[in-house]
């Protein structure tokens, strides 16, 4: 070995004195981060059929809420004939309500507020869940006891009745605020999950090491512990967003949230309350259009959440690849003796 030949010399072949071949610029670092945190997971998601469908659906809704609002007219009363059927005219591709509002416009212009609610609710739920879970699991002792008692209490209050009271008391109109209220209990499950994950982590060597060299608690938590929690945080985000959609449409449908925002639930409420709509087969599209819009959105999010399992769980990924490989082998028996990663994947799959 070269190091033994020249002890103590400034030789570059010593592993302790090796310098990198080139200096990484800030741009390189960011590129690396984007590569490993955004591109790679997206590629894994895209490889899974559920992930692909989920990404397409959610992107479609995002486009509808951003660009779509520029192209589709803001809906108003009597902008078209009453109860025009769907797919009959270009002016109202999805038909109109009994009040002559364009259903496509109603759907499109409800989307931005819906996304605001989802983002506010999911971020609030995640932030609370992460902070409470991390602090509780890492600190232990009385802090843990108090925080978990609060979490359990919050968890045991039935969701919808609590939302009714809060909606009646606050009468919120701001979509960001509505999102937070609707996900007011969303953090409890996440906090519990993260706490139980952090408890064993406290004893891990690298966490102990960081503590020993005098890193402050906050930095240990964010740098060593938090990255391990990423799967839970992503899942929490998806669940939070889905929960907010269900709750907001439900409460708008009941007519308990003030009707200042356009919402899919408001359309549903109009169709349900309108005396003729339920008896009238010509009004079916008035009910079905919002129903399909809501279901499509939650379906996309659910699929995406399922596919994220593959991003975070290499074992699941290996299993799926092994299964795919097996199917290919059945088709082409000559391609049977692979070695390396795929054979490991095959073993894991069995």
């Amino acid at each position: 070995m070269a190091t033994e030949d020249t002890p103590g010399g400034g030789d570059e072949s010593s592993p302790f004195q090796a310098r990198s071949q080139y200096d990484a610029t800030t741009a390189d670092v960011y590129q690396q981060m984007i590569e490993s945190w955004i591109i790679a997971p997206l590629r894994v998601l895209w490889d899974d059929y559920r992930g692909r469908i989920g990404i397409i659906i959610v992107t479609a809704y995002v486009l509808m809420g951003t660009i779509g609002t520029l192209f589709v007219e803001v809906p108003s009363f009597n902008q078209g004939p009453s109860l025009a059927g769907p797919f009959e005219s270009m002016a109202h591709p999805l038909g109109t309500t009994a009040y002559g509002q364009d259903l496509l416009g109603l759907m499109v212009h409800s989307t931005p507020a819906m996304f605001k609610m989802m983002i506010a609710g999911a971020i609030f739920g995640n932030a609370m869940g992460v902070v409470v879970g991390l602090v509780s699991g890492y600190m232990g002792g009385n802090t843990d006891k108090v925080l978990m008692t609060i979490t359990d209490t919050m968890m045991s209050i039935p969701g919808l009745p609590l939302l009714l009271i809060l909606a009646a008391l606050i009468e919120p109109t701001n979509p960001w605020l509505i999102g937070i209220i609707l996900n007011i209990q969303g953090w409890t499950g996440l906090a519990r999950a993260i706490r139980s994950q952090v408890l064993p982590l406290r004893k891990k060597e690298y966490v102990e090491a960081s503590k020993t060299i005098g890193q402050p608690t906050s930095s240990v938590l964010t740098k060593d512990v938090l990255p391990e929690m990423l799967p839970f945080i992503t899942m929490g985000f998806m669940n939070g967003a889905t929960g907010v959609i269900h709750a907001s449409v439900g409460l708008y449908f009941l007519g308990i949230l003030p009707f200042t925002n356009q919402n899919w639930g408001v359309v549903l409420n109009d169709a349900y309350r309108d005396s003729g709509a339920l008896y009238n087969l010509d009004a079916a599209h008035w009910l079905l259009v919002p129903i399909i819009t809501i279901t499509g959105m939650t379906f996309g999010l659910t699929l995406l959440a399922q596919a994220f399992d593959q991003v975070f769980n290499p074992r699941v990924r290996a299993r799926h690849q092994a299964r795919k490989r097996n199917e290919e082998e059945e088709n082409d028996p000559r391609d049977g003796d692979d070695t390396g990663v795929d054979s490991i994947a095959n073993q894991l799959g069995d």
């Binding site: 559920r50 889905t242 959609i245 269900h246 449409v249 439900g250 449908f253 129903i291 809501i294 279901t295 939650t298 379906f299 999010l301 659910t302 699929l303 399922q306």
Partner: peptide
């Protein structure tokens, strides 16, 4: 089953 559970019960 995933599609089913994506549908809110009130729908």
């Amino acid at each position: 089953v995933i599609l089913n559970s994506a549908v809110p019960f009130y729908i």
